[in-house]
């Protein structure tokens, strides 16, 4: 009887229900200072740091632009992953998740509403950062915004699934600060957000490329500069179609993580507290 687990993520959804859940999420978010800080404060802090990198060079690029494009990917970890882990853990433990399931909402509408809000926050953060990069930090405007957006949306799905799985392994909202650390640390250090992976030996570089955030860093940087910034890429200028082709491998890595995320969310996600 694994009723308290995730039954099916893909069910028919009503748009008005999803938007109603999203509206609830947004209301609660605006009233919760600590969540608000992680959604607004952290990106501001990281964005501010970029100004200290100006003029330095890394991986053949201005370091502010290199790190800035890394943050375009990394903000996903705050806005979607950490946010959803803490929201779903807290709601499971205070039984509001059970209440949300006691009416006409389907399970996928409960997930979907929260996903829409956290995904929208991430995209807004990324858009603002693109503006900062393009104006205050003297960078170019994105060469291939469509590619960037596709990568970001795929990333939202992958990290939401990982968040649902990790929330099932998190005993309470306080512990959520700890259980997100492995994914956050791996994403920060191993996915080429701030330091190019080109310095790593071949096998380690391939392994780093398989981390869940790595595809997004590659796709966003490639799309932003219009140069091949995938693992082992030449950084030469490429056109619209070639950029997509070079990013097939990162998208394949995302597909793999989607499968892993679905499997682990089905296995670990819980609607109700363990002790109930």
């Amino acid at each position: 009887m694994n009723s308290s687990r995730l039954k099916d993520l893909v069910q028919p959804m009503s748009l008005s229900h999803v938007l109603a859940v999203a509206r609830l999420d947004l209301t609660l978010l605006l009233r919760n200072r600590s969540v608000l800080f992680s959604v607004v404060g952290m990106p501001l802090l990281f964005g501010g740091m970029l100004f200290g990198f100006r003029g330095q060079e890394t991986g053949g690029l201005d370091m502010a632009l290199f790190a800035g494009t890394g943050y375009l990917a990394f903000f996903l970890v705050f806005a979607v992953f950490m946010n959803l882990v803490s929201v779903f853990t807290a709601r499971r433990e205070d039984l509001t998740l059970k209440r949300l399931r006691s009416g006409s909402l389907s399970d996928s509408e409960v997930f979907g509403g929260s996903l829409v809000v956290s995904g929208a926050i991430y995209l807004i953060q990324a858009l603002l950062l693109v503006v900062v990069l393009g104006t205050a930090l003297g960078g170019p405007w994105p060469a291939n915004p469509l590619l960037m957006l596709a990568g970001m949306l795929a990333g939202v799905v992958v990290f939401a699934l990982l968040a649902f799985a990790i929330s099932g392994l998190t005993p309470n909202a306080d512990m959520a600060q700890l259980t997100v650390v492995p994914v956050m640390f791996a994403s920060m250090a191993g996915s080429g957000v701030m330091f190019p992976l080109e310095f790593l030996p071949g096998a380690a570089r391939e392994a780093a490329g398989m981390l869940p955030l790595s595809p997004l860093v590659d796709i966003v940087r490639t799309g932003y500069f219009g140069q091949d910034h995938t693992v082992g890429g030449t950084q030469s200028d490429i056109g619209f179609v070639e950029a997509w082709i070079r990013c097939l491998k990162p998208f394949a890595v995302f597909a793999l993580w989607t499968v892993v995320g679905l499997w682990s969310a089905r296995r670990w996600f819980r609607w109700e507290p363990r002790h109930a």
């Binding site: 008005s16 205070d94 509001t96």
Partner: peptide
Amino acid sequence: GFFADLTVAETVDQWRRF
């Protein structure tokens, strides 16, 4: 559970949307 930060009216209004 109830969402502790919502008022009674907000809670009912929210549920009306569902």
